[in-house]
């Protein structure tokens, strides 16, 4: 499989049912569905700007089950940045992120220069088990960023990815493309309500 060198790969991890696919789909397609279809591994692509030129942002949505450890190892080794998702309605889902973070640490050697975002999804839900402060505390312990989101309400979703990209110090990336815009990018702009006429 020939891999384009300027691809930037983001991998989304988390326990089953926390809303990984919902977050990714909300970001990539701007849609939300209530139905639950377990994912094995889906990859989406989006054009972003990077160092004053364009590159492809690849977002890999992974499985929440522990059925495919080899695939998980592979996506960690290929990934440039990681999103660790838990549901604020389940403390268990936050706990399940620990071994994943451990594995990232193990495969990458160090997490110092690797953008990682801890995400508490479903923040629109009222049945909370994890408070925002707790999430923040874990993030501090893990030396990573933290954010609460809701894929359903489209809250903080775009911001999450923008923030993640800005954590990458080796490249200067942004979701907005200056100059040339692909049709897909235009669509994203529309969702953001910033649609500009060309």
């Amino acid at each position: 499989m020939p891999e384009q060198s300027n691809d930037y790969r983001v991998v989304v991890f988390g326990a089953g049912g926390v809303g990984k696919s919902s977050l990714v789909l909300r970001f990539v397609k701007g849609t939300f569905r209530d139905t639950y279809i377990p994912t094995i591994e889906d990859t989406y692509r989006q054009v972003i700007s990077c160092d004053k030129s364009v590159c492809t942002l690849q977002i890999t949505d992974t499985t929440g089950s522990h059925q495919f450890p080899a695939m998980q190892r592979l996506s960690i080794s290929k990934g440039h940045a990681f999103v660790l998702v838990f549901s604020v309605t389940s403390r268990q889902s936050l706990e399940e992120l620990r071994p994943i973070r451990q594995q990232i640490l193990q495969i990458k050697g160090s997490v110092e220069s690797i953008p990682i975002m801890l995400v508490g999804n479903k923040c629109d839900e009222t049945q909370r088990e994890v408070q925002a402060a707790e999430g923040q505390a874990v993030a501090q312990e893990w030396k990573c960023a933290f954010m609460e989101t809701s894929a359903k309400m489209n809250y903080n979703v775009k911001e999450l990815f923008q923030e993640l990209l800005s954590l990458e110090k080796r490249r200067n990336m942004s979701l907005n493309i200056d100059g040339k815009r692909s049709s897909k990018q235009k669509r994203t702009d529309k969702i953001k309500g910033k649609c500009s006429l060309m």
């Binding site: 990539v28 397609k29 094995i40 591994e41 889906d42 990859t43 989406y44 692509r45 989006q46 690849q58 059925q67 495919f68 080899a70 695939m71 190892r73 592979l74 897909k184």
Partner: peptide, 22 residues
């Protein structure tokens, strides 16, 4: 060990969803 037994990886280079393990 890219894809385990019983799972195929489907690619769609022209779509925005570029690949999917099924």
């Amino acid at each position: 060990t890219d894809v385990p037994q019983g799972v195929i990886r489907v690619q769609a280079p022209h779509l925005s969803k570029v690949s999917m393990a099924i």
